[in-house]
Every structure is written in C-alpha cells, then in structure tokens.
Design a protein around this nucleic acid. Structure first.
Ligand code: NAD
Ligand code: NAD
Lengths: 230, 230
DNA sequence: AGGCACTCGTGCACACGTTCACAAAGCCAG
DNA sequence: CTGGCTTTGTGAACGTGTGCACGAGTGCCT
C-alpha cells in the first residue's frame, strides 16, 4: 500500500538547512525586506549561493529570475514543507538540569513546539513548576501524549534510563524522538530519532584543536586575520 | 613531533563517529570485555560493520584478523587521535537557563572538558555559584582564557548577543567555539565552530512527521497543482 | 602440519552532496 | 520593441560517504 511515499523526497542535507533559511527569512521579513536573492540569503546563512538555489528548487520554482525570491511567500512555502503550519506539542522526559532548561526556554513554544508536558520518576520533582508547566509523574505519560496529541518526545534522562524512557515514549504513541542522552537508542524502524550529543561535539572540536597543535603544542592567540565578509 | 605528524586526514564523517565508538568501548572495558569485533561494535553503535572497520582503519591497523580489536588499546588509540590525552578546559559565555544546565552537568568534566569558567554580563548573576564554578563578569573572560589555557568556548547567550560573545571569545584567544544560539556566527577562518540548534532538530522531526501524515492530511486545499511528472 | 572458521582491511561501485557554469527568464531603460 | 543587466534553475563535473565482497591474516582443532 502506498509503495510510493509519493511526494518528491527532499534530500536530508537540504531539510537540515531549510530551518536556517526560514529563520533568516523571518528576520528579514521583520525588517521589512520584501525580496531576497540567493546570493544574499547564502551570505546570511553562511553557505554557497548555488546550494541555496538548489535547496529552494526542491520546493518548486518560487523565485523570479533577475529579481530573487519574495520573502514572505518563501517563508510560507518552507513552513508548509517542514510541516510548520500548525504546532507540534512536545513532551519532555526527565526534569533534571537539562529538562528544566528546556522547559524554561521560551524559544520552543515560539517556534511552534509548545511543551505539552514534562515528566520524571523522581517524586520530589513531581509537582514543581518549570516554565509554566507542572512536572508530572512518568506514569501519566500515555495520558499526556494522547490528550495533547503529542508526536514528538524529548529524552532528557541520564543515559542509564534513556532506553527505558524511549520505550515508554514509543509505547505511549510518540513517533519522533529527540535524544540528549549519550547512548544509541533502539527503537522500531518507523520511529524517527535525532540525537544531540554535546560530548561528541566537544570531542570533534578537540580533534581539530589537537590537529591544529600538530607541529608545536602551544597555540598562539591573535595574529588571525579577520575573514572579511561584507 | 616528527614531520610524520603530517598524519593523513581523517574524514569528517569518521571523526564524528569516533566519539561514539569511544564511549561504547569505555563501557565494554568497564564490563571486563577485552576484545571486540567490528560486528559487535557496529551493533552497539547502530552502524554498519564495514563502516566501523573503515573508520578504525584510518587510525592504523590495530585489529587482529580472526579475533577483533583489543578494547583498551583501541580506547587508547581513539583518545590519542581525538586529542583526549589531556583535558580541554572550556569557558561558557552566558549563565542563563542553558549555561546553568551546562555548568551543573558533571558529564563535561568527566569526559575531559572541565568548566574553567562561566561569564555573564548580568551583574545579578555574577558571583552566584553553578556546579562548583563561580559566575564571573564577562570582562574577566580574557584573563580566564589565558590563565586556564582555554581553547574552547561555549556560546550560551541569546541570539542577539551571540556574535558579540563569539567576538570576545576569539579576541580572548579561543580557537574553537560551540554555539547554542540560533544564529550563524561570523568568525575568522581559522576558528572552528560547531553549532547545536535544537530548533533545527525539532523542525527536521516536524518535516518527517508532516511527511508521514502526508497521505491522510490534506494540507493544501486547491493550491499548487504540481503533478508528479518527472 | 594442515585444514577450517573467523574477522580484519580495503578495492570498487554506487549513492549522495557540493559547486561551477551557463542558458533561460524576467525587468527596465530608452 | 530591443538590448542590456540581473538572477534563477539546473545539467554536469567533482568530491565525499557508504556498503558489498573478497583476499589476507590469525587462531584453534584435529
Ligand atoms: N545538563 C546538561 O547540560 C547536559 C549536557 C549534555 C548532555 N546531557 C545529557 O542529558 C541528560 C540529562 O542530563 P541532566 O543534566 O538533566 O541530568 P539530571 O540527572 O540532572 O536529570 C535527569 C532527570 O531524569 C530523571 N529520571 C531518571 N530516570 C528516569 C526515568 N526512567 N524516567 C523519567 N525520568 C527519569 C531524574 O529523576 C532526573 O530528574 C543526560 O543523559 C546527560 O548526559 C546533559
Ligand atoms: N535553554 C534552552 O533549553 C535552550 C534550548 C535551545 C536553544 N537555546 C539557546 O541558547 C541560548 C541561551 O538560552 P537560555 O535559555 O540560557 O537564555 P537565557 O536568557 O536564560 O540566558 C542568557 C544569558 O546570557 C546572558 N547574556 C546576555 N548577553 C550577554 C553577553 N553579551 N555576554 C555574556 N552574557 C550575556 C544573559 O545575562 C543571560 O544570563 C539562546 O541563544 C537560546 O536560543 C536554549
């Protein structure tokens, strides 16, 4: 059945850049800019102009040759393609350091991802209020997911509890997971998982630092020439 | 420091997976496992076995055919390649929700990235103690960077202040930046920047959710008749 | 010693992503 | 209407990443 997920597939690399374009276009729109060229958008987004055009071409031919792209219309098209025409409530599992920071961060709701709930096993945390949301016991997870129609879950538990948290999220009906714990989650194939691992990021930076130091161990500050982006 | 330090470059994709292997190997080592095959490591890391072997081959030929890899030795080699043979102190700019969560997170120090300092412009935050580190005024940033030999800076300010924070980090002598603010930083070419943008991650998940619903939800009433003539 | 089972290391083909380069398309001035 | 200028959209070349398939070592068992 429906062997063809018929819609033209947008390359992963492009999907990961569309949110960046979207944010920039939103800012430009707020500043009253009505039209923008791929060149300018590329500059603001720190990418190549041809890449911008190719990325946008996957949405359709929404530019005007010789002129550029109409900002508001492009915002609309990207939002539509990303499924941002309506809110996606999220549920957070784990109300520790990170869960609290996430709950207390207004940027989520603003961008269409309101926190529908936050749950924890720790009784001492249940009942406290974070960012306007009351922490509830993890047993209430299924109920939250169902009544609030939550599709996206966030795992913010220690690594040792992350797989269990993911299992509970899946059982409750969540179909996408954003995982902050430093482990590889095992989930059914149909579940989309994205991982954010700070330790990995730092270790990648470490690799480059180590490599930079290659010849002589001590890095010399200063002396760097500013990149002249206009 | 032989000229041979001119080690062949390791592909980015591999560098980003080495930390994952490292964590798994550490766990295995702690459990008393002495030897591991590429197949098993691939399973634990959620990747393809051939990929594991190819990745590890960039470090040199440290496996034993017919047997596998010696866990502790591999840990040593990966740590060496990633530059994890010594600590890399980091400095955090911005002691808000996120900065506090980061400072209060022990996992950093454990993995070789101790928090050398955390700074903020907000006088009311200066002096408070987070995760054992006292928040200092941003004017003290250069001093922290120099006395603690910090190479890595973390930007955890609002987007509007992130470029300024990055500029100050660079001026203070930092050469790698981990950016949590949702903007594209402009820095000298020599500076390595990595970005962690939660909004982007959520929007990517949104894309897949929207796509999943594709068949049953009619998002576009009548508009844009783009037939699938390819 | 020889054979066998196992697993690494890697050549190769293919998929995916990036960038260049240019014709086509649109706008505007005169 | 024409010519000149700008910018898009995309074919094609190139680079990077992935995964199969298999030769080459290694250890064990008989
Ligand atoms: N805090 C950070 O800055 C940071 C940075 C990088 C990664 N992380 C990762 O994020 C995760 C959370 O970090 P943290 O600092 O918030 O940890 P934390 O220990 O402060 O909080 C974890 C919370 O999860 C709860 N919990 C434990 N088991 C649970 C379960 N089975 N179900 C539901 N809740 C459960 C605990 O009660 C606790 O409140 C960890 O995996 C950590 O590695 C955190
Ligand atoms: N908190 C989260 O869960 C979360 C999630 C995703 C992204 N982010 C991003 O992380 C960044 C920080 O988020 P937050 O929730 O911690 O914000 P926040 O407002 O709680 O904290 C920001 C801190 O930065 C300080 N600051 C402002 N300007 C500064 C400057 N020029 N120099 C030094 N410090 C300065 C402020 O005084 C404040 O303490 C934001 O860019 C946000 O978009 C946060």
């Amino acid at each position: 059945m429906a062997p063809d997920r018929n819609r033209r597939r947008i390359p992963d690399a492009t999907v990961s850049r569309l949110p960046v374009y979207l944010r920039i276009l939103g800012e430009q729109s707020a500043e009253g800019v009505e039209s923008i060229s791929s060149e300018r958008l590329a500059e603001l987004g720190g990418v190549n102009a041809a890449k911008v055009r190719k990325d946008l071409s996957y949405l359709g031919s929404y530019g005007t040759r010789g002129v550029g792209y109409e900002v508001d219309y492009l915002v609309y098209q990207i939002r539509r393609e990303l499924g941002l025409t309506h809110d996606w409530p999220v549920v957070i599992v784990g109300a520790g350091n990170l869960g609290q920071a996430l709950a207390g961060y207004g940027g989520f709701g603003e961008r269409g991802f309101p926190v529908a709930g936050i749950v924890d096993v720790d009784e001492s945390k249940v009942g406290t209020v974070l960012g306007g949301v009351r922490v509830r016991h993890i047993d209430e997870l299924p109920q939250i997911v169902q009544t609030k129609r939550v599709n996206i879950g966030v795992v913010a538990t220690p690594g040792s509890a992350a797989q269990e948290a993911a299992d509970l999220l899946v059982k409750a009906g969540v179909t996408s997971i954003l995982n902050f714990a430093p482990i590889v989650l095992s989930v059914p194939r149909a579940i989309e998982v994205r991982k954010v691992d700070l330790a990995v990021e730092l270790q990648i930076l470490s690799y480059h630092e180590q490599r930079r130091a290659g010849g002589s161990i001590h890095a010399v500050p200063g002396g760097t020439s500013r990149s002249a982006t206009a």
